[in-house]
């Protein structure tokens, strides 16, 4: 899809905690699969998961591409 991403909208109720987003993010920026080095942050909450982003997030959208559960949506 064309156009620069201006925001990644999150749908935490759809998040299953698979961490595919963290895996691809850390791989892209740190050249290793390492959830602790990811710029998208998944946290366990009482009722599922919370989704946050570190300041370093560049809105590259890779996490959106790899989220097969539609918990992330790119706004362009």
């Amino acid at each position: 899809m064309a156009g620069k991403i201006i925001e990644i909208e999150t749908h935490p109720s759809k998040c299953v905690g698979c961490l595919l987003c963290q895996l691809i993010c850390s791989f892209n920026y740190e050249k290793m699969f390492n959830p602790s080095k990811s710029r998208i942050l998944i946290e366990r909450s009482d009722n599922g998961f919370k989704i946050n982003f570190a300041d370093e997030c560049t809105l590259c959208g890779l996490c959106v591409q790899f989220c097969v559960y539609n918990a992330l949506e790119a706004k362009r």
């Binding site: 698979c18 595919l20 097969v68 559960y69």
Partner: peptide, 12 residues
Amino acid sequence: KRRLSCIGCPIG
């Protein structure tokens, strides 16, 4: 209520 997944699983 909701679904859970192992790390890296697209099925969950």
